[in-house]
Design a binder for these strands. Structure first.
Length: 931
RNA sequence: GCGGACGUGGUGGAAUUGGUAUACACAACAGACUUAAAAUCUGUCGGGAGUAAUCCCAUGCGGGUUCAAGUCCCGCCGUCCGCACCA
C-alpha cells in the first residue's frame, strides 16, 4: 500500500480542476446562485497563515455550496494600493508598481498552491488602470449626484518631513520617521456624504436587511453611527463686570454675539452646569487666542496630540480658562468658559456645558479646576439630604432635585420639559445628531487612484471629462523624499482646463484605499470592459451571500462598502441596498513575538526555543523571574512588561546568566510573562518572548504556510488551520499540531486505499444492507447530518472533530458488509472534500467514484438512521449527577421517573430522605430533589 | 477614555444554547512492533482522598437567580480588536 504523496497529488488535481473548468462561475442552468467572498488581501509580500485560515474557510463554504447544487461565484483579487508600497519605494528605491505586482505574483502562486476553488478568470488588482478607471467613473457620477464635496479638515503634519502622516505614523505625538512633534494642519480635501445615509445605514441594521450579520458587528456599527437626539442651545455671554480689566479684548467676535451653541443629550441636568467647554479648534478659541499667548500655547499643546480620537480621549483632561463668562439660562449664575482638550470639534457643535455630577469626564475636570459640583439627579431610593457625589458621577436615571422648575420630575420628563423651555426662550431646539462624520477620501500620496478633478483658476474645480479617463498615475515619480510625489512631479499635474482651456492643475490627491475596497465585490460579480458594472450580471450575483473577513474591519470597511452600495444604487449601477447578506468575522492568527535586547524584533520562523529550566508542566505565566545576588541573597524581580531597549537588554542578560546558574525561576501567583527565550538559529542571539500579537510583517511574527505545504501539503495546512479553534476566535499559531493533521490525512488514505475500486463493485443507489450494517450506517448518516449542520453554521472545528469520530468508528468496525463500507467510505471522502480537497479527489479516484468529487452532489442523511431507540439519561440528586439510566427513547415521564428512583446508584442517595420533587426533562436529565 | 468581544485540563478546545462539564485533537507518559530510529497500533492522562466501590473540589475572581449555572443577572480582574490617513 502506497503512502499518500501530496507533492504529486496536489499539483495533479489542481491541474485537473483547471482543465475541467470546475470553478469557473456559471450563471446558467437555473440553479440558485451563491456568491462566496473573502476579504481580498493586501499584497504585502507573502501569504501568511492568517490568510490561509481566511481563504480555507471561504473555500469550505464554496465547495460545500457547489456540492449542494448552487452556481457558485468565488473570486479573488488584490487590494493593491496603499502606503507600504510607497514606504518600500522610499526605503529601497523600487517603484511601488513593481513592488506591488511582484508581490502579487508571489502571493498568487502561494494561493494557487493551497488548492482553493477560485475562479481565477475574474482576478484583478485595484491598482490596475482597468479597475481604477471605473472607480473614477463612479466618483464622477457620485460627484454629479452631489455625494462628493470639498471642505477643510485636519491632518497630522510632520513639520520636518513636510508631509501628512497617517495616525499609525504618529507615535507618542511624534512623526515616526523624523521624530518631530506633529502639528495639526488644515487642508482642503474631498469628502463623501456618508452622513446623508446615516439614517438608512442605521435602519438597515435592525429591519431585517442585515439579518445575516453577527450581532456584535451590528452593535459596533450602531454605536459608531451614534444617532442621538438632543438639544442644540445657545448660552449667552454674561455682561462683563466692572472689575474686569481689558474687557475690550474679551469681546466675542460678531458671529458669536448671541452666544455659544452647545449640544447636549441631557438638558435635564442644566441646573447642574458649572462650566462651558469648547474644543481647542473651536473658532471662538481661535479668536481669543489672537490676544492671549497663554491660550495659544495651550491650543498648540492640544494639537500636539495629533488627530486621532484615541489619543485625544486618553490624554489627561486639561482646560484653559477664558476671560469671558456665560449666563445660565434659568438662573443668575455665571459659568466660566474653558477651552478643553477633551471636547471634540467634529462632534455636535464643538462645545458642551459641563455637569460634573452627571458625567465622569466633567466631574474629573471640575475636581481638577475646583468647580462646583451641584447634584441634580437623585438616584432611585437615595436620600436627597445625604446624597453626594464622590469619586463617581451618577449617569443613570432618577428624579430631579436642586433644579428649579424641574424638581421632582423623572429624567425623561425633565429632558422634555427643559427642551421645551429652552425652545420657548428662543435659545435652541431639539436636533438629531450623529457621531458619524463624513468620509474624507483624500490622501496626499502617489500610490492610490487619482481623483479625477482639475483645479482651474477661472472655472474652479472641474471634473475630468469621461473621454479623458482614466487619469493614470505617472509612470515615474520621485520617491526619494517624503511628501506627495504627485504634487512635486515636474509635468503630471499641469493640464489645460477642460472647460476654458486655460492652464490648470490636476488634483494631486489620490483616493483612500477604502474606496478601492468599497465596490470590488460588485466588479468581481459583473465585470464589463466599458462600464464599472454589468447590471444584468450584478443583478444575478449580488448581494454577496457569504462575506468572510477579520473583525478588525467590522466598522470602517464594512460601513463604507454599505454606503458605496447605496450610492451605486442611486446612480443606477446596482439594485441592492446591502452588499453582504451574510457576514462572518473570523478571528486572527496570532503568534508570539520575539524582541532582542535592543528593542528590535526577531524572526518567528528562524528561532530555536530554549525553555528556561522548568519542571515538566511549567506554564508561561506561572513563572516569575528574578536575579539572585549571591552576596546578600537578595532577589530582584525582573520586570517584563517594558519596551525600553536598555531594560530589555538587561533582562536578556539576566536571563542568560540565570540559565547558567539555574537560580532564577520561582513559581509565583503573580502574573509574569517571561518564562522562556529563543535563540536566533543563525546568529545565536537571544530574544525575549514578547506578547502574542496579530501577525504582522513589522513584528516579524509571521509564519509562512509555504514551509508547511512543502512538508505536509496544502491539505494538511488547510486542515490544521480549521481544526481545534472556533473560526471566530483568535488562534495562536504553534508548530505542534500540523503533524496531527498530517497523521489524519494518512489515516484517511489508509482507510480508503485498502478498498480500491470498492465503489465499482456495489450500487450505492440500491441499498443492500442488513442488520449487521446498521451501527455503521447510523454512524455514517449521523456524520452527514452533523457535519452538514456544522459547515452551514461555520463550526469547522466541530465538523473536524466529527470527522475524527466518524473515522475512529469506521476503523474499529468489523461486522459491516461491503455495501455499508462503500457507503461509509464514499461519504467520508465527500465530507472531507471541502477541507482536504486534493486528498478527497485521490480517495475518490481510488474508490472508483465517478468523475471529480468536487462535482459530486453532497450526501443526504437518512432521517430513519438518525433516530435512536434507547437513550442514556443522567440522574441527579439535588443537582449532583449520581447515576445514569438507559430508557427507551419514547418512554414517558412516569416510566423515566420510575426507572430513576429504582436505580441502585440513585437509591443510595435518596434512602431515608424525603423526596420533594422529581424533575424529568425528556431526553435530557432527571433531577430528584430530596431533603 | 469610548465601543465590541473573549476567559473551561499541560495545550487548542467541546458542552445539543439553562439539563450527565472536560467530546475531538495536540503534548506527555507507558506498552506492542523493530537490530535501531521513524512511522503505526494499544493504553493512561483536571486536582485531591481511598485497595476499591465511591466521595470531595474544579469552567478568571466575588456575589445572586434556579430543582439544575461554563451558560442567565450584578460587581470586579485579565487579554484581544476598533477608534475615522494601516489594510
Amino acid at each position: 500500500m502506497s503512502r499518500y504523496n501530496p507533492k504529486e497529488a496536489e499539483p495533479k488535481w489542481q491541474a485537473r480542476w483547471k482543465a475541467a473548468g470546475a470553478f469557473t462561475a456559471d450563471a446558467s442552468g437555473g440553479k440558485p446562485k451563491y456568491y462566496v467572498l473573502e476579504m481580498f488581501p493586501y499584497p504585502s509580500g507573502r501569504i501568511h497563515i492568517g490568510h490561509v485560515r481566511n481563504y480555507a474557510m471561504g473555500d469550505v463554504i464554496a465547495r460545500y455550496k457547489k456540492a449542494a447544487g448552487f452556481n457558485v461565484l468565488h473570486p479573488m483579487g488584490w487590494d493593491a494600493f496603499g502606503m507600504p508600497a510607497e514606504n518600500a519605494a522610499m526605503q529601497t528605491g523600487s517603484h511601488p508598481r513593481d513592488w506591488t505586482y511582484s508581490n502579487i505574483d508571489i502571493m498568487r502562486g502561494q494561493l494557487k498552491q493551497m488548492g482553493l476553488s477560485i475562479d481565477w478568470s475574474r482576478e484583478f488588482a485595484t491598482c490596475d488602470p482597468e479597475y481604477y478607471v471605473h472607480q473614477q467613473r463612479l466618483f464622477l457620477a457620485f460627484w454629479k449626484q452631489g455625494f462628493a464635496y470639498r471642505k477643510e479638515s485636519l491632518v497630522n503634519w510632520d513639520p520636518v518631513d513636510n508631509t501628512v502622516l497617517a495616525n499609525e505614523q504618529v507615535i507618542d505625538g511624534k512623526g515616526w520617521r523624523s521624530g518631530a512633534v506633529v502639528e495639526r494642519r488644515k487642508l482642503s480635501q474631498w469628502f463623501l456624504k456618508i452622513t446623508d445615509a446615516a439614517d438608512d445605514l442605521l435602519a438597515a441594521l435592525d429591519d431585517g436587511r442585515m439579518a445575516g450579520w453577527p450581532d456584535n458587528v451590528r452593535t459596533m456599527q450602531r454605536n459608531w453611527i451614534g444617532r442621538s437626539n438632543g438639544l442644540a442651545m445657545k448660552f449667552r455671554f454674561a455682561a462683563a463686570t466692572s472689575s474686569e480689566e481689558g474687557a475690550d479684548n474679551n469681546a466675542p467676535p460678531p458671529e458669536f454675539e448671541d452666544g455659544i451653541e452647545i449640544f447636549t443629550t441631557r438638558p435635564d441636568t442644566l441646573f447642574g452646569a458649572s462650566f462651558i467647554a469648547i474644543a481647542p479648534d473651536h473658532p471662538l478659541a481661535t479668536h481669543f487666542a489672537q490676544s492671549d499667548s497663554g491660550l495659544r500655547d495651550f491650543i498648540s499643546d492640544c494639537q500636539k496630540l495629533g488627530t486621532s480620537e484615541e489619543a485625544i480621549e486618553k490624554a489627561e483632561k486639561r482646560g484653559y480658562k477664558l476671560q469671558v463668562e456665560m449666563a445660565h439660562p434659568f438662573d443668575d449664575r455665571r459659568l466660566p468658559v474653558y477651552v478643553a482638550n477633551f471636547v471634540l470639534m467634529q462632534y455636535g457643535t464643538g462645545a458642551i456645558f459641563g455637569c460634573p455630577s452627571g458625567d465622569q469626564r466633567d466631574l474629573d475636570f471640575a475636581r481638577k479646576y475646583r468647580l462646583a459640583i451641584p447634584p441634580v439627579v437623585l438616584p432611585p431610593e437615595a436620600d436627597p439630604v445625604t446624597f453626594t457625589i464622590e469619586a463617581e458621577a451618577y449617569v443613570g436615571p432618577g428624579t430631579l432635585f436642586n433644579s428649579g422648575f424641574l424638581d421632582g420630575m423623572t429624567t425623561e420628563d425633565a429632558i422634555a420639559a427643559a427642551t421645551a423651555k429652552i425652545e420657548e426662550m428662543g435659545l435652541g431646539k431639539e436636533v438629531t445628531q450623529y457621531r458619524l462624520r463624513d468620509w474624507g477620501v483624500s490622501r496626499q500620496r502617489y500610490w492610490g487612484c487619482p481623483i479625477p478633478a482639475i483645479h482651474c483658476d477661472k472655472c474652479g474645480i472641474v471634473a475630468v471629462p469621461e473621454a479623458d479617463l482614466p487619469v493614470k498615475l505617472p509612470a515615474e515619480a520621485d520617491f526619494s523624499e517624503p511628501g506627495n510625489p504627485l504634487d512635486r512631479h515636474p509635468t503630471w499635474k499641469h493640464v489645460n482646463c477642460p472647460e476654458c482651456g486655460a492652464k490648470a492643475r490636476r488634483e494631486t490627491d489620490t483616493f483612500d484605499t477604502f474606496v478601492d475596497s468599497s465596490w470590488y465585490f460588485a466588479r468581481f460579480a459583473a465585470p464589463d470592459p466599458d462600464k464599472p458594472i454589468d447590471k444584468g450580471a450584478a443583478d444575478y450575483w449580488l448581494p454577496v451571500d457569504q462575506y468572510i473577513g477579520g473583525v478588525e474591519h467590522a466598522i470602517l470597511h464594512l460601513l463604507y462598502a454599505r454606503y458605496f452600495t447605496r450610492m451605486m444604487k442611486a446612480c443606477g449601477y446596482l439594485s441592492v441596498d446591502e452588499p453582504f447578506a451574510n457576514l462572518f468575522t473570523q478571528g486572527m492568527v496570532v503568534h508570539e513575538t520575539y524582541k532582542n535586547p535592543y528593542g528590535g524584533w526577531g524572526p518567528a520562523d528562524n528561532v530555536v526555543i530554549e525553555k528556561i529550566k522548568s519542571d515538566s508542566q511549567l506554564r508561561p505565566h506561572d513563572v516569575r523571574t528574578f536575579v539572585l545576588d549571591y552576596a546578600t541573597g537578595q532577589k530582584t524581580n525582573i520586570e517584563v512588561q517594558t519596551t525600553s531597549a536598555e531594560r530589555l537588554g538587561w533582562m536578556c542578560k539576566a536571563v542568560m546568566d540565570a540559565v547558567e546558574h539555574e537560580y532564577f525561576i520561582d513559581y509565583c501567583e503573580q502574573t509574569a510573562k517571561l518564562s522562556a527565550f529563543v535563540l536566533d538559529r543563525e546568529s545565536g542571539s537571544p530574544y525575549i518572548i514578547g506578547p502574542i500579537e496579530k501577525m504582522s510583517k513589522s513584528k516579524k511574527n509571521v509564519v509562512s504556510p509555504e514551509a508547511i505545504a512543502e512538508t505536509y501539503g496544502a491539505d494538511a495546512a488547510r486542515w490544521f488551520m480549521l481544526s481545534d479553534s472556533p473560526p471566530e476566535r483568535d488562534v495562536e499559531w504553534t508548530d505542534a499540531g500540523v503533524e496531527g493533521a498530517w497523521k489524519l490525512i494518512n489515516r484517511i488514505w489508509d482507510a480508503v486505499s485498502s478498498s480500491e475500486g470498492l465503489l465499482k463493485t456495489v450500487d450505492l443507489n440500491n441499498p443492500a444492507a442488513g442488520d449487521a450494517d446498521k451501527p455503521l450506517r447510523q454512524t455514517t448518516h449521523g456524520a452527514i447530518a452533523g457535519i452538514t449542520d456544522d459547515i452551514e453554521n461555520f463550526r469547522f472545528n466541530k465538523a473536524i472533530a466529527r470527522i475524527y469520530e466518524f473515522l475512529n468508528v469506521l476503523k474499529s468496525t468489523s461486522g459491516a458488509g461491503d455495501w455499508a463500507r462503500a457507503e461509509a467510505l464514499s461519504t467520508l471522502t465527500q465530507l472531507v472534500a471541502p477541507f482536504t480537497p486534493h486528498l478527497a479527489e485521490e480517495c475518490w479516484e481510488t474508490l472508483g467514484g465517478e468523475g471529480l468529487v468536487c462535482n459530486a452532489p453532497w450526501p443526504k442523511a437518512d432521517p430513519g438512521l438518525l433516530a435512536r431507540d434507547k437513550i442514556v439519561l443522567g440522574v441527579q440528586v439535588n443537582g449532583k449527577r449520581r447515576s445514569e439510566i438507559e430508557v427507551a427513547a419514547d418512554a414517558d415521564n412516569a416510566a423515566v421517573e420510575k426507572a430513576a428512583l429504582s436505580d441502585a446508584g440513585v437509591k443510595r442517595h435518596i434512602d431515608g430522605k424525603t423526596i420533594r420533587k422529581v424533575v424529568v426533562v425528556p431526553g435530557r436529565i432527571v433531577n430528584i430533589v430530596v431533603s
